[in-house]
Amino acid sequence: QSNYKAEYKMSLVLGPPTPWGMAGQIWADLVKERTQGRINIKLYPGVSLVQGDQTREFSSLRQGVIDMAVGSTINWSPQIKELNLFSLPFLMPDYAAVDALTQGEVGKRIFATVDRAGAVPLAWGENGFRELTNSKKPIKSPEDLKGMKIRVVGSPLFSDTFNALGANPTQMSWADAQPALSSGAVDGQENPMFLFTVLKMHTVGQKFVTTWGYVADPLIFVVNKDVWNSWSPADREIVRQAAIEAGKQEIALARKGLVEADKPLLKDVAGMGVTVTTLSPAERDAFVKATRPVYEKWKATIGADLVNQAEKDIAARKK
């Protein structure tokens, strides 16, 4: 086993103590323990191995610049267009729908695509449902969003979605977004709720939250192919099992405070002086309707087959 590296480089967008960072930490710890230190992993949060450029993470992993990663489907969509599936507006109504996709036929097909794209996918994690926040007013309808400047992440699908809602999307990294939000150059943003508390978004003027759950981005645990092939079959199995266990633990962390009946996380957020708006089914429908053309347009890009399968599995999910 002379070709084992002394240390393997794992790329992450967020470090511990965020659920995303914990996913990497738990995975690395389990692997080290179970391989008796044969496989040592060092965490590189902030995608620091490619100067923070989240959208180059996957190609760098394929090229051996990164050995392993826990990455978001949004960040890897420039390389794997099928991953845009999870960013289709209002595809997944609840956590059961997310599970129906990742743990079912769709998940298998996506893993096959990731494999074709040059990396070994091992397990699913979760970044979570992305909720809308802003500094101006409670948003209950697309009309409320009209003309608002919203910071979005790097995929053209997000620009399309917010344009369809009449908003004014601007793409920028979080480092730019923070001062832009606090100075009022940008009105709002969308991110999972746990990030709202971690990044203290109420301190940059984000006083209104709408829990519309329009998209959720799962995380994928992957390993570079050459690295994978350099390991013994027994070690590969250890790494895979560890990823699956870390994914399960991480999903529980990411949903903490949001799956309980009284949603304590939202209460915490409201306790910071933030107005939390929950949409009625009719209000939510207005957003669904407004974004339907975007959904249809991107359905073709992603692959109608895959989207149809996803719709079928969601309809058949256990609630």
């Binding site: 190609s59 394929r62 969509s77 790097g154």
Partner: peptide, 11 residues
């Protein structure tokens, strides 16, 4: 690689 894997730009 960018050509072979059909990578598209994020923006």
């Amino acid at each position: 690689d960018d050509i072979r894997f059909g990578e598209t730009s994020p923006g």
